[in-house]
Amino acid sequence: MYGEGMDHFDPVSAWAALLRTHAAVIPKVERALTPTGLPLTWYDVLLVVNAAPGRRLRMTELGEQAVVSRERVSRVVTELERAGLVVRQANPDDKRSSFTVITPEGRKRLRAAAPIYLAAIEAHFLSRLSAEECRVLADALGRVVVAEEADRIV
């Protein structure tokens, strides 16, 4: 069990626990979202776009902020566009780029799915941790994200 035998703790076990947690929890969150008709990748992209100023993001920004890999974000946006949940708008300041904009239908579907998503996260992740453990995890993993994103910019 995790946390036992800490006198022989191998730091790489933190990485293994992160991967195993992801593998155990993500399929359950995906299954919970199935009745909403929003796959987890769609939910993620809609959530990021909806939270952006003006509810729109350049594709490059979306690729940086979404949990979906940069390689997949374009495909996910195309799928969302076909479903009428986002539209692409030309960037008047840069003809080489475009914005992804959430539609009213996209916002409606996101709002309907949000309680299901949050309940799944609570049931399969947050309920297993104390508030302090959540804070420590968020701080520690946040440092990794900030460092890796800074490395990507350089």
Rank of each mutant, 00 (worst) to 15 (best):
E4T: 14
D7G: 12
D7A: 11
H8F: 13
F9I: 05
D10A: 12
D10P: 09
V12S: 06
A14L: 12
W15C: 09
A17C: 13
L18D: 12
H22P: 02
A23S: 13
A23E: 15
A24E: 14
A24I: 14
V25L: 11
I26P: 02
P27C: 08
P27G: 08
V29Q: 04
V29I: 08
E30R: 07
E30I: 05
L33R: 12
L33S: 12
L33V: 10
L33F: 05
P35I: 11
L38T: 14
T41H: 06
Y43P: 02
D44T: 13
L47V: 10
V49E: 01
N50R: 13
A51N: 07
A51V: 07
A52I: 14
A52W: 07
G54I: 10
L57V: 04
L57R: 05
L57D: 02
M59Y: 11
M59R: 06
E61R: 05
E61C: 02
E61A: 07
L62W: 01
G63C: 06
E64D: 15
Q65C: 10
V68D: 04
R70I: 04
E71G: 07
V73G: 03
S74D: 14
R75Y: 11
R75I: 11
R75E: 14
R75H: 13
V77F: 00
T78C: 04
T78Y: 06
T78K: 07
E79G: 10
L80W: 05
E81W: 00
R82W: 02
A83P: 10
L85M: 03
V87A: 03
R88D: 00
Q89P: 01
Q89I: 02
A90W: 12
N91H: 13
D93N: 06
D93V: 04
D93Q: 08
D93L: 07
S97C: 14
S98N: 09
F99A: 02
T100D: 00
V101F: 00
V101H: 00
V101S: 00
I102K: 00
T103I: 03
G106R: 04
G106K: 03
R107L: 15
K108G: 10
K108Q: 10
